[in-house]
């Protein structure tokens, strides 16, 4: 390798790291904010590296004491003003709605991909069109419907609406993955004597694992970050992270430290989930069954 190309290589590495830094810095700043005292948070100029780390924000947010024998501090306003937000609610809702929508979407998508029927294309377009409706437009009517059927303020209610919101995209995404599985593989199994269900379960589904993982990640993240429906359809029974986060903005100021602490904690389950499905995500789809 020549000197010239070596220096170019170095330049490229510097450029790559700069881009990484650009994306990682906000995350870094957010995470460090979670460990800062209010004074450090509002420092001018902002203290990026040097500050006194504290777990105070986490303790307040989760209503528990993390330090050694440290007393839980009483917040201004008296008592534990920020009730322990139930991170658990978010996990249940996101996990539940992901399982529900991925299951339904996978079945629907396989059918759409394999069985020709009159108006199939129109059907696919119609499926997508339901996603174009802004959530705010249906939130209020839905509130009354939920109230009547008793789904208001329940896990089932929130899981259901999140799954429904995710379905169109999940169906289309899964359909594209199934479309990528050559239909000759189905036909080969048909001739081998397999029923449609067996083909789906034993042959096609294992090939679409990568697609299922990708779809699941998408559904999970949507549910994890969804705000409007949780805000309108829940009261005290459950609250997910985005809605709890919004309650940190108060008339007496914004509790940045608490908000950051909750945000950081909320990153963990989503991160773990993506880590779990990552292996499937990067797997090749057809795995060399066919000559490309």
């Amino acid at each position: 390798m020549t000197v010239h190309s070596a220096s170019r290589r170095r330049l490229r590495i510097v450029a790559a790291w700069s881009v990484v830094a650009l994306f990682v810095f906000p995350l870094y700043y957010w995470i460090t904010t979670a460990f800062k005292n209010a004074r450090d948070i509002f420092d001018q100029p902002p203290s990026v590296w040097a500050f006194d780390p504290t777990l105070k924000n986490f303790e307040e947010v989760f209503g528990i004491s993390l330090g050694f024998l440290r007393q839980q501090e009483v917040l201004p306003g008296g008592g534990n003003f920020y009730m322990a937000p139930r991170l658990w609610d978010s996990i249940v809702v996101a996990f539940g709605s992901t399982v529900l929508s991925v299951t339904l979407a996978t079945l629907a998508a396989y059918a759409l991909s394999r069985f020709p029927f009159r108006g199939r294309h129109a059907f696919v377009a119609w499926v997508l069109s339901t996603r174009m409706m802004p959530p705010v437009a249906v939130a209020i009517p839905l509130f009354f419907i939920y109230k009547d059927v008793g789904l208001l303020d329940t896990y089932a209610g929130v899981i259901l609406i999140h799954a429904v919101m995710n379905l169109p995209l999940a169906v289309l995404l899964m359909k594209s993955f199934f479309d990528d599985v050559p239909k000759e593989i189905d036909e080969s199994a048909i001739i081998d004597g397999a029923s449609r269900w067996l083909i789906f379960r034993r042959v096609v589904l294992p090939m679409a694992k990568g697609g299922i993982a990708a779809t699941a990640v998408l559904c999970f993240i949507f549910s994890w970050t969804e705000f409007v429906f949780v805000l309108t359809l829940t009261q005290t029974g459950l609250k997910t992270v985005p809605v709890v986060s919004s309650s940190f903005v108060t008339s007496t100021g914004t509790a940045w430290g608490n908000m950051a602490a909750l945000g950081v904690a909320a990153m963990v389950p989503a991160f773990v989930f993506i880590l779990l499905v990552q292996k499937q995500l990067v797997r090749g789809l057809t795995l060399g069954s066919l000559k490309q």
């Binding site: 050559p182 000759e184 593989i185 294992p206 090939m207 069954s289 066919l290």
Partner: peptide
Amino acid sequence: QNYALYPT
């Protein structure tokens, strides 16, 4: 033509 083997 494309063998259609079951890749998994």
